[in-house]
Amino acid sequence: MSEPQFVRARSVDHAIDTLKAAGGDGLIVAGGVVVSSLFNQRLASPAVLVDISRIKGLRYIKRTPNGLSIGALATHDDIHRSADVKAVAPLLTEIAEDVSCPRLRNRGTLGGSICTIGGQGDPATGLIALGATMQIKGPGGERTAHIEDFYKDAFEVDLAPDEIVERIDVPAPQTGARFAFCKLGPRNAMDFTQITVSVVMAPTGSGIRIGMNGVANAPNRPRATEALIATMNAGSINWTAVGKTLNGEISPQGDLVYSEDFKRHLALIGLRRAVERALARSKEAGGRA
């Protein structure tokens, strides 16, 4: 019943040093939502808890020449309210306002959500579709990782025990790019079993980036499906063919709510709806920045 030591990190380097000293037995706490849930279920017993929530300069959203830079501690609520996000990557605004519920959006951070697939991975799908990168810092210095490469397997991410995600860089989509987010679950909110799809499409034609969650062990980017759609006419996509390719790229597992087959079925429906919404949006908005 020994309690983990609680360390309030003063800086990113302090956090990294503390994690390093913990020798793999440290756990980062940002908003604390997922970590608390683990404790409540008695599923975690680290030696050290490293609270990064008070590190100055990790909670921000700013515009950069290339797009957006979002500090790891920015909450879903921050993102939802940000005029900059809305201007540069409104897809993230749309996703943020549908992440679980207000009281959890207020605490849950973007960095935490990426690392733990918190918020059921909704934000990760958008970041994948937008081609975001993560700035990660560890004892050996900083490195950049593409978010779609970050997820290795269930509960396995490309992050060493003494590394920290500092920020997420979101490149601005091309002017006139079309986007949409689609979430399919048994209810209208608060589902853990759900299929989520984000798409960002080129201003014209059918060039597309797709981020999905709920269809594999972790958020993923179905590249072959993207490539196939890109060869098709945006107005007449052959969804049967797309479905076949998509099926080869996803590996959903049945759970208490949906069977594997049904998840496969919904994955294609979700993708189709996201694409149709994206295309419809371009009509109604006449393309947007």
Binding site: R187, F192, L256
Partner: peptide, 16 residues
């Protein structure tokens, strides 16, 4: 019992 909690026992919420 496989779903001993509100996470996987789907209760209707205000939006449902």
């Amino acid at each position: 019992i496989q779903n001993p909690g509100m996470r996987d026992y789907l209760l209707p919420g205000a939006k449902d």
